[in-house]
């Protein structure tokens, strides 16, 4: 690969995160659980990559791994050409400021005993050691940026509404002037009207500051609104990757198609004709088979014998399926 093509921005190659698997009371040596296996993507500056998958798909792990909040087993995390995966904690410090995480549950992400002002000012104290006065000034500026009023400064998190809380955590994440935000389901706990406001705000901030987003969500509609490219994860593996529009109009992987079919569409209609495929979480994976084999409605014998590699469907569209869907399952 030519590294000079995307030297600014984030480029992840062959990223794997493995945990020692625990079985019963004892631990079987050498047994590992692959939370992420060989994940790669490119996120150019100022763009958004949507990471889609269900709980357990590894999407949150991916977000944490990119920020080095979870140990990386293999792979490279290239940030402006520097491999973050190999840096020591000390060398990583300057990069940490450039990349921030916005947590799924804003309430959990704030110390309930601290005032909003202190919460927003915490990174300013930790990263820059600003004095009290400067911190307050900056906190006010950050609050304004996310459309909140300064009267909130003295309040506690529990006195805020869900939408306000999420904007406070966003303000805090912006405190160190990051260039990349990892957004972990930032709108999933919000009412639709608040979700719209947060999504619009994220778009505006991206335009203003040239931020890059890694937007993690199981809500395809939210992802479709904000992301230029999509990455579909299933059991820690990339199923499909490509431009949002192409991927949603013509999903090539049966899993992507299933996610789309389950998505509550804006088109009214009684119970859907095609019931969502049954997920059986207790099944053990078949070694050597496609990870989606047991769930797939279109699986053929070959899918059991051999796991498909990510292959190009052209135009930047990758899919890990032996029989990528040809029917145009457009939602209309």
């Amino acid at each position: 690969m030519r590294e000079d093509v995307v030297s600014s921005g984030l480029r992840v190659e062959g990223l794997s995160v493995e945990y020692a698997a625990k079985r019963g009371l004892g631990r079987t040596r050498g047994d590992t659980h692959k939370a992420l296996a060989d994940v790669g993507f490119i996120l150019p500056t100022g763009q958004t990559l949507g990471v889609v998958g269900e709980s357990g798909s590894g999407k949150t792990t991916l977000g944490h791994a990119v920020l080095r909040m979870t140990p990386v087993s293999r792979g490279r995390i290239l940030w402006d050409g520097v491999d973050l995966a190999t840096l020591s904690d000390r060398d990583l410090r300057p990069y940490r400021r450039q990349m921030q995480l916005v947590f799924q549950d804003p309430y959990e992400a704030m110390n309930p005993r601290m005032s909003i002002g202190r919460i927003i000012a915490e990174p300013l104290l930790l990263a820059y050691g600003l004095d009290r006065h400067a911190r307050r000034e900056q906190a006010l500026r950050l609050l304004k940026q996310v459309g909140l009023d300064e009267s909130l400064l003295g309040r506690r998190p529990r006195a805020l509404s869900g939408g306000q809380r999420q904007r406070v955590t966003l303000a805090r994440a912006l405190a160190t002037a990051p260039r990349l935000l990892v957004l972990d389901e930032p709108t999933s706990g919000l009412d639709v009207s608040l979700q719209a406001r947060v999504l619009n705000l994220l778009r505006d901030l991206q335009t203003d500051k040239g931020l890059s987003y890694l937007f993690i969500s199981h809500d395809l509609a939210a992802v479709a609104y904000i992301a230029q490219r999509l990455l579909v994860l299933f059991q820690g593996r990339v199923m499909e990757q490509g431009p949002t529009d192409a991927l949603l109009r013509h999903p090539a992987h049966p899993y992507t198609a299933a996610l789309l079919a389950a998505q509550p569409s804006a088109v009214p209609g009684r119970a859907p004709k095609d019931p969502a495929p049954a997920m059986n979480p207790v099944a053990d994976p078949v070694p050597g088979a496609c990870v989606y084999y047991q769930w797939c409605g279109k699986a053929l014998p070959r899918c059991r014998m051999e796991a498909p590699d990510l292959t190009s469907l052209g135009a930047d569209h990758l899919v890990a399926c032996h029989y990528p869907g040809h029917e145009t399952t457009s939602i209309h």
Binding site: M69, R97, L101, F103, A109, E122, P123, A127, T169
Partner: peptide
């Protein structure tokens, strides 16, 4: 999460 966040801030 708020402790993780603080760590991320250094």
């Amino acid at each position: 999460d708020y402790v993780r966040a603080a760590r991320q801030f250094g």
